[in-house]
Design a protein around this nucleic acid. Sequence first.
DNA 1: TTGAAAGCGCTAACAA
DNA 2: TTGTTAGCGCTTTCAA
Lengths: 363, 363
Amino acid sequence: MTAHGTPFLPEIWYFMPKKSKSTIYDVAKKAGVSRQTVSRVLNNRQDVSAETRLRIQNIIEEIGYRPNAIAQSLGRQRSNVLGVVTAGLKYIGPSRTLSGITAKAEELGNGLLIKELASFNANNVKPILQWFQSHQVDGIIWAAPEIENNRDWIDSILPEINIPIIFISMEKNKSVSIVTIDNFSGAKTATEHLLSLGLNNIGHLSGPLDWWEARQRKLGWEAALTEANIDLSSHMCVEGNWSSRSGKSAFVELSDKYPEMEGLFVSNDQMALGAMSAALEKGIKIPDDLAIIGFDGIAESEFYCPALSTMNQNQNELGCIAVDVLIGEIEKKLLADEVFSPKYIEIKPELIIRRSSQILKRR
Amino acid sequence: MTAHGTPFLPEIWYFMPKKSKSTIYDVAKKAGVSRQTVSRVLNNRQDVSAETRLRIQNIIEEIGYRPNAIAQSLGRQRSNVLGVVTAGLKYIGPSRTLSGITAKAEELGNGLLIKELASFNANNVKPILQWFQSHQVDGIIWAAPEIENNRDWIDSILPEINIPIIFISMEKNKSVSIVTIDNFSGAKTATEHLLSLGLNNIGHLSGPLDWWEARQRKLGWEAALTEANIDLSSHMCVEGNWSSRSGKSAFVELSDKYPEMEGLFVSNDQMALGAMSAALEKGIKIPDDLAIIGFDGIAESEFYCPALSTMNQNQNELGCIAVDVLIGEIEKKLLADEVFSPKYIEIKPELIIRRSSQILKRR
DNA sequence: TTGAAAGCGCTAACAA
DNA sequence: TTGTTAGCGCTTTCAA
């Protein structure tokens, strides 16, 4: 890495002594009215005469005045800013959710303060919430995953924070609102798809089982098999950590201890990629020897070899809905005329069938 | 300007919004000191007696007081919040950069207000800058790509905004600081790697050429061939749009019009995946018939079939550096004792050789 | 339709 | 070491 600062003459504007930005007072003075009248124009109030309004608007335009949002927040006791807690942005899932959040927040005129957890399983929750609180966010979106018991703080810390909050991808809970993918039914659908091919020996490559989402998907796989009267056994499942690398090694392990396996449900697409890489090396042909289906529906999975069947989940929409619901709850809280009842919203993932699970019916 | 402020401690709260959060008043009152003394404790000033400090700290702890950051920003005229403009979070590159930004900002005690452009090539730049300005961000990180002439606003709009700003991935410019991957030399290195295999017919599958990054990579490819005394011709290059799908169709086109191609430099890993998918379908063996190298170094590329050679770029670090440099410039601006000289920092991507370009030397 | 006054919660400059 | 005064820039009463 090379750094070469370039000693050009500085562009004058850059370090110009703060041309003291104009305030509402400057506008008022120039218009010969009080600040309150300007404020009324800014807030589109109706109790301003048309001509006064026009005059003020022209002056605002002329001197390039912009209200100070910080001062507005302080005065209004409302910031129109939401706090977002995310984790693992270097993976594609969390980013897609964040993308939905940014789009919807923009649409509804809200800013976003963002914090990314240093690790998925961070336990320093309180400082984050307090930081958001001190920054007067109107609401919080918790878009980091539920792992082990890292939701224990909900009932202990949340009450004293007293800010509307919504969680993404979390187990149903009676005291907070949640938006989530229906991992259980998605996994069940995926497994049923493999069963529908006439296969009986269907393994599972799960995500890390301290993750709620991974457990739900495993439960979905189990439910499908149970409904089909297939006995479950521990040798039919191996645990990965979401990465392609772990998928590869887990597959090696699984195919060793479950050699009769004809179908495999993998808990995400990345691990499925690793699994297919291992299968190739072991001479296991997909889909002929083994039908595979993943979970997530990342864009690239269509171009794996072979193209990967998967359960497509719309994480973008997850983010959109979270913002929508949260802002609704913020409004309700302000009106305080309605009793708060937490929502639980589930989005069903969609089955995408590709080459990796296209085989002739057996049996 | 009129003087205001609250000269007296309020005796009675006639109007008490539900859970009135405690303010610096409450602490001062309870401690029997002035607000100023509390403020001194909050800001770790030295001019407070040890016992007063302790007493105040205890009270703060006891009533769970947290300073209002919004009010602090207003008073200090400094928010300790940076604005971030990003685009395409649903792709992995921008997210990795953002992840670096969040980590470094956290480390340095800065908050982050984030805006995602609705499209890569958004032209509504001014409202975004003004929004940041009105929210009193201390600096701005522009992490959206340079496309066509979408940087024209730098000299027109930036001067009136007057906030330190740093750009990620942009052509060198004399008036602003920039942190970027060295796309040119990365592409040159990739192409030279293919040349070193003894191949002479090396094609290029480029990104969209209205992107600066895509053009730089194409130039790097051209430079390597020129240095090797290989003539360039338009039939040796086809343009994609970064997606795997475009990579697939572009490859079909390229292999038709450049059948003697023995090596291929693809401008990102996703398109390389698509290209390999197409190659498989056309019966072109990789690496034996065609050696391929990508660009990006996404985690999955190691598990493609075959494993993809690539130029690894550390986008996370890009974000870290951007924050570091920006905060440095903010400090300098406050001191105003140093002349501003824009920095241009380049990070070299790193060659990763995998199966897709491992062939016996020819010639 | 307008303006004066009193905040929002905190910091900074200056005294004491 | 502490308190006083005057803001930061805007909004919200309330009265005119």
